[in-house]
Computed example of a mutant assay.
Amino acid sequence: MDGNEATVVSLDTKPTSNWAPLPLTTVEMQKDCARFFKFSAKQTLTIAEKLYNSGFISYPRTETDRFPKNMDFKKLIQSQAQSQTWGQYAQMLLNDGSKFRQPREGSHDDKAHPPIHPVIFTSGESLNANERKLYEYVVRRFLGCCSKDATGLRTSLTLKWGTETFTTSGLIVKELNYLEVYIYNSWESSKSKIPEVQAGEKVTLTSAQLSTGKTSPPSPLTEPELIALMDINGIGTDATIAEHIEKIIERSYVTKEDQGRGKSKSKVLIPTELGYALAEGFGQIGFDSIPGAP
């Protein structure tokens, strides 16, 4: 390297957004509840169906991620304004026209049921702890859908030191918007501030460190990851994915085990010897080479 001076190649600041969520589908609900609450896919559906049968939320088995054109969002939001927890935010959406927005539209519509959303308000007194968690999640997701995206400024800085080029970036969050109510996502300003410099300017480096490392094998799948892969590859439907996962655990093809510690702790699916044997057996049968085979 050439001394301890580097040259600023570029400094670029652009507006950026953290998008509000799409209307809620069964698969997204299952993935989120596994991540946020450690619910299994089957447990999530069981709880959601109880809330539906009690009249608190809409039908929980749906692939639709766009609301009907005639949906009365203001009426649904108004019913949530009485909450001691998120009521103030709901009222703000009603009072401030600049904060409310029509929910984004996804590309899926099963033509049978709308996205999952709260139907009436409940304080949760008649619900158990897990039911309250899921109901609150559905409400906050719905209010988030009716809110504007979070906005910020993303700055990218590129330096050249000798023959090497280095790039870093920083974020300044300007407006949280939907993140004020959808507490399950986080988006924070960078702790280290990007210095105010100009292209071509020389800067003095105070320290440099060379690190070594190695690649690691992929971690076992978590249930949210498996649900996402099944959805992408068309394995099961919103109504049967949970049953498929429960069945391979029940039949001891995989086991569900804890991985990590503290906040990073998660449950992963570990194939058993029986599971490996089954997969290898299917591979040797050669279904891929059989015309018309699934």
Rank of each mutant, 00 (worst) to 15 (best):
D96M: 03
E28Y: 04
E49P: 01
A34W: 13
T167R: 11
A293W: 08
M92V: 09
E188D: 15
G236R: 03
T272C: 08
I290Q: 10
M92A: 14
G87S: 02
I194Q: 07
K38S: 15
P103V: 15
K193P: 05
P115A: 04
K256P: 09
K42P: 09
E175L: 06
I120Q: 07
R261H: 03
E175P: 05
Y135Q: 07
N18T: 02
Y135A: 10
P271E: 05
P195M: 10
S156N: 09
K69L: 15
E201K: 11
A239R: 13
R132Y: 00
F142Q: 00
S189A: 10
E257D: 15
Q78I: 06
Q82V: 15
Q30P: 00
K191E: 09
G144W: 00
E131G: 12
Q82R: 14
T7F: 08
S123F: 02
E280W: 14
I245Y: 00
G286K: 03
A41M: 03
P218E: 03
K75Q: 11
L134W: 05
Q84W: 10
T155E: 03
T215D: 12
T44M: 04
G162C: 10
T46S: 06
F287K: 14
F282W: 09
T13W: 04
R141E: 08
P220H: 00
S79Q: 12
A90E: 01
L94F: 14
S98F: 06
E125W: 05
S252I: 03
I245K: 02
E243Q: 12
G87W: 00
L143T: 01
N128F: 02
P291C: 07
S54T: 13
G236H: 08
I232V: 14
S266Y: 06
K148D: 11
I285F: 08
T165N: 10
W187Y: 12
S252R: 13
I285W: 05
G200I: 06
Y135D: 02
A90L: 04
T64G: 08
L51T: 01
N185D: 14
L134C: 07
A112W: 11
D231F: 01
R104T: 07
T168F: 13
R104L: 15
S79W: 05
E63P: 14
T215I: 11
A6S: 02
G144R: 01
Q91M: 05
A90Y: 00
T222P: 13
V138C: 11
C146G: 11
F56S: 02
S207V: 06
D72S: 03
P68F: 01
T237Y: 06
Y59C: 01
I249Y: 04
